[in-house]
Design a protein around this nucleic acid. Sequence first.
DNA 1: AATGAATGAGCATTCATTCAT
DNA 2: TATGAATGAATGCTCATTCAT
Lengths: 195, 195, 195, 195
Amino acid sequence: MAKKTGDKYRAIIEAAVKVIAENGYHNAQVSRIAREAGVADGTIYLYFHNKEDVLISLFQVKMGEFTAAARQELASTADPFERLARLVHLHFTNLEADRNLALVMQIQLRQSDPGIRRGIAEPLREYFHLIEGVINYGVEMKAFRPDLDVRLARQMIFGTMDEVATCWVMSHHPYSLAGLSGQVYQLLARGLTGA
Amino acid sequence: MAKKTGDKYRAIIEAAVKVIAENGYHNAQVSRIAREAGVADGTIYLYFHNKEDVLISLFQVKMGEFTAAARQELASTADPFERLARLVHLHFTNLEADRNLALVMQIQLRQSDPGIRRGIAEPLREYFHLIEGVINYGVEMKAFRPDLDVRLARQMIFGTMDEVATCWVMSHHPYSLAGLSGQVYQLLARGLTGA
Amino acid sequence: MAKKTGDKYRAIIEAAVKVIAENGYHNAQVSRIAREAGVADGTIYLYFHNKEDVLISLFQVKMGEFTAAARQELASTADPFERLARLVHLHFTNLEADRNLALVMQIQLRQSDPGIRRGIAEPLREYFHLIEGVINYGVEMKAFRPDLDVRLARQMIFGTMDEVATCWVMSHHPYSLAGLSGQVYQLLARGLTGA
Amino acid sequence: MAKKTGDKYRAIIEAAVKVIAENGYHNAQVSRIAREAGVADGTIYLYFHNKEDVLISLFQVKMGEFTAAARQELASTADPFERLARLVHLHFTNLEADRNLALVMQIQLRQSDPGIRRGIAEPLREYFHLIEGVINYGVEMKAFRPDLDVRLARQMIFGTMDEVATCWVMSHHPYSLAGLSGQVYQLLARGLTGA
DNA sequence: AATGAATGAGCATTCATTCAT
DNA sequence: TATGAATGAATGCTCATTCAT
């Protein structure tokens, strides 16, 4: 049970993104996800423990992929400011690339259910760790202020990006999210350096 | 029906804060809120349209009170930086004063239900407006950068405060939230002014 | 919750006897019992914890009534043999009076589910106690053998009546169950006295 | 399909006895029986029509073996009373020899499902026939009363043994079942002869 | 205004069975 | 013969909401 690989595993994940984005988590019936994935209802339970596990796994897969890609991308530049700039840009580009996924990430995953919160915690922590790496690197390179509280700085960076992204997905008139990355970077960079 | 005043109206709001904080929105049965408020189940429907309306009204009342108090408090100083500092401090102080309320505000109200999102929008917009007032005032007074994108700046301020507050409510070991307001203010102020 | 009295409580019990007799316990949908009782599905859960509790309660009510009536009836004669004869006759008369109830008692209640076995145990023990009372009385009055093992004697009496009753409900061609009570009494009485 | 012989056929039967005894019929998943038998799920359907057929076949095999053995054993004595005594002793000895099997026979096979009742009927009828043979022989040999109703006498004998056996498997503190056969025989013999 | 007994829509999950390999 | 991944039908229960009193 709960085999976490294979074509059907991916198909169910992608179907879940679509159905949950369109209907919300609580209105996304398992049978609708199954139909969208082209499998039987019961097949979902060969790959996931339950409906909640689908949502959590979706986050783990997508967030894991993003974090891994971002980690690699950030390592390819030695400039602390460039790293921060790329982080913001990657964050926004990733969300803008798949609007359904963005909807799920920014809205549907913000469930208060304890099980979901718990399942989301670990991959999120890894992303937080990545952000803190950028901050620490900047401090070490004497690019950022030496007296930075790393946790607060990370909360500013993530909180800001998250709020900008949420407003973007919720917006009625379309605009480019990635197009904001420059200005957001400026705001954040100033906060981390400052007069 | 749906009289929005009276002792029982307040009693139900307060009961809802407690029951929702302890059980989560979806596990907070109307009958439990009624019992906690000392009224019959049906009585709730004399003051609220439905369960969702209880949550929304709760937010409107609490957020409205906070925004009004903050507006007054901010007006009492002419220094743009002081205004920003007070905003952060009031935001954190307000949440720290009532942990149950903070839990509801930071966790339980982040429901994906469209109705709730809609009901929350207006009071939230007012608070955003207040924040943007602080920003615009700082720009006018030539304290903040003239080229600030007000919306982005507001998203940074709110996003940062919100993320810091959420981490605080979710934390297992207790620490003072208001105690962080100084450092958070520093981070934000630098972002708004900069080198 | 689970108020164990009232018209609806009785109505649901009676409906359950009918629906379970006709369809078997596992094929007796709660909604069908509700419709037969003239109440909504949810109403059943105001009077019973769950479907299993309906079956158990049914047994407790019906068995309790029978045991009480039998206890009274048996006390009205001082003759040990007459008591045994009446016991058999009451047992058979009671089952023959309501064929649906007999079907449920002899067939449907013989479920292997541990919960049901447990719920049935207590009222059954009381009935066993009543039977053992008849045996002990007979021994005291020197009507039955002094060396009787009371438990074994009870098992013979109950086992025999139960097997006769089960064959009767399962039979395709109808015959009178109560009409057999005389012969069954003879068999049992001889076993308890003997040469 | 449904070949009723072979090593795997027996292996599945024995696995079913174990799994059903431990979990009950409804909680005994086919896949668990398959694993216990060391075969694939689908293999069970090469030997049995369906899950119900496994239970029925189990009964037919075990009951058939018992009835055949008992028939032979009983024929080896000409004394009617001795035949009855042996019947009781064999019945109890057989159950006591395999506690898992006893659990299945006394508890799990008492399902209300019509299909199971039907599948069990024939082997049971043969056992009843064997018991009635003992009774008729006793009457012919003028050992038992000439006015015995054979069916009622059989119901007393089987009902008594069955009830004693059921109480034994259900008991929490262990005791010998076969050790009771003497007393049970005495009770029954008196009933069949009598003053 | 207040009550609380009654309502009934809505859905995740299991597991016996099949069939392509 | 044997496998085991895939199927999909089938239903008990909760709880927000109503309305007769």
